[in-house]
Design a protein around this nucleic acid. Structure first.
Lengths: 193, 193
DNA sequence: CGGTACATGTAATCTGTTACATGATTCA
DNA sequence: TGAATCATGTAACAGATTACATGTACCG
């Protein structure tokens, strides 16, 4: 019964879900739900976002499946906390997942769907949306570069573990740069539209 | 009661959903569910993907909300079809949506989460995943360029409607190019890891 | 006194995916 | 005969979002 539930949810090659991201975060060190939520606001969260509500629910089910273990830590003055760590079963599941199929998530960006409406709406509205997006991409790009400068100044001599994170960061930097370039191009066209 | 349901689902500034993409597709001309599904395999579907199952369900609820109208077209020899068109209410809702907030979808790409596992798994596995991804991006990039060459050779003299589509396509081209460049960079690093 | 950080959760709803289901026509 | 195209759907489930809920400690 347990086995069946396990198989159906997290079998080899299963689609990516928050579960795998949480287990990945726990490879480094044991974390509380709260700390995990913070991790998903930065770093890993740049590539897989999740809210604290989602995280607490997933931790419960990961625990039920034996993929993480919990230690309750009583605290004076503040709420008790639960520290989660990855189990051997969790590590094995992660490895299988990494070795399995990697599918691209279907693209879903409303800005581009909105652009399909350009013939029927005020161009200024869309120009503003692109302008706003430009700001967001610039901000994110700057953040990524800051992280790179601080922690990855010598990419050729990184540990395997660090290299993975560095490559993900490089992907982020390139994505943001491409988005910035596109916004500038689009704004030029929209200027005269 | 009707109004309440309408408000809660598609109010001004509401989050993007398939509904808006469907209404956008219907701006051009009336379509059947089947044709919409095909549209979501190309063109609009590059920026907002959807399966036929989802589309048929959404069409039903869009009809119930008066945002589209249906004409049943009996056919000899093949199944009858239902042709959908956007209503005035649908057009207004779309306009409000375009004018409303445009939020970035949270990034969720399992490839990058997998890279965080590089310290604990065989590098070859991840190299293969990046290699595969490279092929997908190259294919998609080539497709976008083909579409551009065929329909948008003179971008400076496009109609407003065409310009919107062109800019979305340009975004796609830039995204794919950035992804290709990243894959090549990553492969070089993973070669020696 | 108000805001932020710490700390954890439930419930309802919405959205998307996968599996299942049917049936004719055309082309190789 | 078998695959592709046309044509439409239901049901179950998985995953994500939003709203709601609670309470302490510390800093300004």
């Amino acid at each position: 019964m347990q086995l069946f539930a396990y198989k159906s949810q997290l079998a080899y090659g299963a689609a990516m879900a928050l579960n795998h991201a949480i287990l990945t975060a726990l490879l480094d060190r044991d974390l509380t739900g709260y700390e995990l939520a913070k991790e998903f606001d930065v770093s890993l969260g740049f590539f897989w976002q999740a809210s604290h509500q989602q995280i607490y629910q997933q931790l419960k089910s990961l625990d039920a499946e034996g993929l993480v273990h919990v230690t309750e830590v009583p605290q004076a003055g503040r709420p008790d906390k639960k520290q989660y760590g990855i189990t051997q079963a969790g590590r094995e599941l992660l490895k299988d997942w990494v070795a399995g199929e990697t599918r691209r998530k279907p693209a879903r960006d409303d800005l581009f769907v909105k652009l399909y409406n350009l013939g029927d709406v005020d161009a200024g509205t869309l120009k503003d949306a692109v302008q706003k997006r430009l700001g967001e991409h610039r901000e994110r790009h700057a953040l990524y570069e800051k992280i790179r400068d601080r922690g990855y100044s010598a990419p050729k001599s990184l540990s395997r573990r660090q290299l993975g994170r560095y490559l993900a960061l490089r992907a982020g930097i390139r994505q943001e740069q491409a988005a910035i370039d596109w916004c500038l191009e689009a704004l030029e066209f929209l200027q005269s539209a």
